[in-house]
Amino acid sequence: MSFEDLRSDTSLGDDTTLGNAEAQVSPVPGLPEGRRAWTGKDDLSRAAAYFEITSDERLSFRVSEVIDVTTINVRDEKTEEEITTVKLVCNDRRLDGVFNVFVDEVCDSLQTETDVVNVIATSAGEWRNLLQVARSPLSESALAGLYGELRFLEALVGDVGVSAIRTWQRSNRDVHDFIGASARVEVKTSSFQNRAAVTVHGLRQLQLPVSGTLTLAVAEVQRQGEDPIDAVIGRIQDLGVPIDELRAKLAMAGYVQGMSDELEASFSLVGWRYWEITRASPVLSASALEDSVALAVSDLVYSLDLSALPAPAATFDFIRLSVELEEPA
């Protein structure tokens, strides 16, 4: 099915003429007349979606400089039906995948909600921050690190249940990646080409908590693998983790669903190694230094030679990460 814009986008003023631009789109299944939707590409080959409305309300706004929202009239060339729609278009081709996730969410809401304009406006408000996050892509090493954390979370939720999501990155002030009542885990990722070392940031990442244990979990991953980050996110959702809670955690990590398509964020997990960090472990931490030195050191990054640690364990008891959380020490 193709759409043809009629004459003008009246939400932008009577003098703004669009002409006879065409959009190649397909209907979204399952939506009734009055709130139908079509997705595809507009005349400039930008990712676009059209949502049918029956009200006279006119929209014209931009969401985080990424998505333009306007009310326009279109004509179905097959039926010659003229339809009033809200058009959503993505201005940044790097974020087409993120845009598609946003549109899918709007379509899902329209399965039960009848006020199309309200659904779009509400979704746009909820996604403003996410779209700002998506505009700053992560480095390959940061994506690899996120993949390792997500694979650990996937295994944790599978063993402990959906409430285990609360142990992952509870705030930007968190010292360790996973924090339970009596155990903590810091996840690091090593590549297949370099299994010997991991990068540690600062004096607190391997700092022992006041109570409980600290485990260093190292995920060995293969880059350019066959497991996209979004596929891992989908599996975690399938385990029952609420999407809003998971999405908030991902945003804190600098990631939004849909980014993996453009970033080619796909890996394969080769295996895990686990070390219990103790006071005897040869790692740098604030407690291992004089207070005056620890306070004077900032922006420290160092490479930890894993061969200097004792033999690793191949498994981890996820039950140790109780969902009954304490305040971080």
Rank of each mutant, 00 (worst) to 15 (best):
V119N: 02
V283P: 09
V162Y: 00
S141Y: 11
N172Y: 08
G240K: 07
E226L: 13
E113C: 03
L269D: 05
V162N: 05
V210Q: 08
W168F: 08
S11C: 13
D76Q: 13
L295V: 05
C90R: 10
A49L: 08
T85S: 09
M252C: 08
G202S: 05
S141L: 13
S211D: 10
S287T: 14
S260D: 14
T167H: 01
F152V: 09
V25N: 01
P310L: 04
R75Y: 00
D177A: 10
F267P: 02
S211C: 01
V106G: 03
E57H: 12
Q224D: 15
V28N: 01
S141Q: 15
E57Y: 07
Q132N: 15
G271A: 07
F192S: 14
V117S: 03
A37P: 04
V160L: 02
Q169T: 10
A217V: 06
E4W: 04
V63H: 06
L300P: 06
D174H: 06
W272D: 07
W168R: 02
S211Q: 09
A197M: 12
E186V: 08
I277E: 11
G225D: 12
F102G: 03
L300G: 05
L284G: 07
K78F: 05
I165C: 01
R173N: 14
D291M: 09
T199Y: 04
D174N: 14
G158C: 02
A294D: 08
L31V: 00
A49M: 06
A124Q: 03
P27I: 01
L216H: 02
S2H: 15
V69K: 00
V89A: 13
V241T: 06
G240D: 09
L146Y: 10
T10W: 08
Q24S: 08
S45C: 12
E186F: 09
T112I: 10
T112A: 08
V89C: 05
S26E: 12
D177C: 10
P32E: 03
S266Q: 12
G30A: 06
I165W: 00
L143K: 12
P242N: 05
E126M: 11
I53S: 03
A47P: 07
L206T: 05
V116K: 01
D230R: 07
V63F: 07
P32D: 02
A217D: 03
S8E: 10
T71C: 03
A219C: 12
V133W: 04
A280H: 13
R94T: 10
Y255H: 06
R7F: 10
R320Y: 01
V210H: 07
A47W: 08
D56T: 13
E290W: 05
L206I: 06
V293K: 07
S45P: 01
W275A: 12
I53L: 04
T84V: 12
A286P: 09
W168P: 01
A37D: 07
V256N: 05
S55D: 14
D159Q: 11
R151C: 15
S26G: 00
H176M: 01
W272V: 10
G13M: 00
S266L: 00
K78S: 13
S163M: 05
F192V: 15
G40P: 09
G258Q: 06
D9T: 04
S171G: 13
T85Q: 04
E52S: 11
A164M: 02
R279L: 13
T79F: 02
A144V: 09
G234A: 10
G254T: 13
S298H: 15
I165Q: 01
W168D: 04
F61W: 12
S190Y: 07
W127F: 11
A196P: 00
N73V: 02
Q205H: 05
